[in-house]
Design a protein around this nucleic acid. Sequence first.
DNA 1: AGCCGAACTAAACAGTGTTCGGACTTCAAA
DNA 2: TTTGAAGTCCGAACACTGTTTAGTTCGGCT
Lengths: 231, 231
Amino acid sequence: MGTKERQDRERQAVTASILGAARELFTAEGYQSVSIRKIAERIEYSPAAIYSYYTSKDDIFLALAAEGFHLLDDKVRGAMTTDDPLENVRGCWWAFYEFSQEQPAYFQLMFVDRSVPRITQQWEGFSFLQEMLAEAVNAIQRAIDAGAFPRALSPDTAMHMLWASLIGPAIVGVRHRLASGEDYDALARDVLNATIAGLQSGIATTFVSCKCLEEGIAGAPVPAGVRRHAS
Amino acid sequence: MGTKERQDRERQAVTASILGAARELFTAEGYQSVSIRKIAERIEYSPAAIYSYYTSKDDIFLALAAEGFHLLDDKVRGAMTTDDPLENVRGCWWAFYEFSQEQPAYFQLMFVDRSVPRITQQWEGFSFLQEMLAEAVNAIQRAIDAGAFPRALSPDTAMHMLWASLIGPAIVGVRHRLASGEDYDALARDVLNATIAGLQSGIATTFVSCKCLEEGIAGAPVPAGVRRHAS
DNA sequence: AGCCGAACTAAACAGTGTTCGGACTTCAAA
DNA sequence: TTTGAAGTCCGAACACTGTTTAGTTCGGCT
């Protein structure tokens, strides 16, 4: 009979309602302020009941983070469909920033309140992320092949640089860390364009001999062994 | 008599021991994991006693954050003493990154675990920060005057861009968010140099007419009114 | 000697994530 | 039809958290 199927369906419905309540509460009040008891109250269950669906509050976080990463994945992939390889690179990173402003609750959850540990049993649920990153690296490689970036540029290095540069403006944006009246979008766009311009100028491939490395900066010599950003 | 003075001294000694215990525990276990009770236990006082020295756990955080910002202030100022205006700019932001790696506990406390709210009664205790930022803007202005940056570059815009670009690599560094074997220092240096190269290329003053703004990116047109990073 | 004010504490309050034992329902096998 | 297994769910508790309150102790001044 379909009894097993019905039970599975019911179980999934409760799971979904827990996740829905958590999503609403996290969005409205932030991860730290939401307790298991509040989630339980919203779905009219006892707090203990939740633990037969999710093993911990962490587990609920991971489920919502996975949702967020899928949204990000969709948005970033959708931004890499131009003919111009360079605009694909620019577009996918601009999409990353836009995601942070369009889905501030997800972004805050994913990158500010907490972060997904790199080693976790649930990491399989995030395996698609590696494909997304690989896609971003490929986009850079295509731009290099098209002559938009120096031949000597490592696409991996460029990817890490774009990531590290843009997470800042995104966080500054969602947390409103600037004085009122500041234009966060323009700041992010400036940073993105400046980083891309910097990559084009070849600085990331020639900095080994740049002044600050040879002489150290302000009496703080660069430690031996620190030479190039690993590729 | 000097009784009042002695009492003041004793009070200050207890205050310092609270702060010392908090500093050690925050460094060893992180802000969230340290409780008032743990601090109290370490200095062999009752938890309630702490509340006659600091009004809240937040207050202790602010005191330690102020310490951290003074350390940062010293380091950044010390890095702006070159003759070359451009190297002063590069140096002071590299000092910011270096601070994050040399004082990861302070950095984590100041920029990751929590952040100093922009509006706070204790904000006066952080007023020296405005001077530090003004100094950083001045350094950029001097570099512009010396011809190292385009005349049309707003030093304020450049300051915000450098800040937003470098906070990323610093956070990535203290949190070890890259695969093992990655060279965080080199990543930060690449980002810094790329951003400076981008500023030099004039991208932050001309992007108003750049392709991504005129056409939107991947079907996501830039909202009207978003034009330039406010100066 | 009496008193004041500061320092300090024990105990409690309201909250947190989580666990445990038991009650209750559902359903297939005996 | 009864039995037993499997599950779902809850009340109560545990060990915490930041913080408050009432009360005690004690040095120093009058």
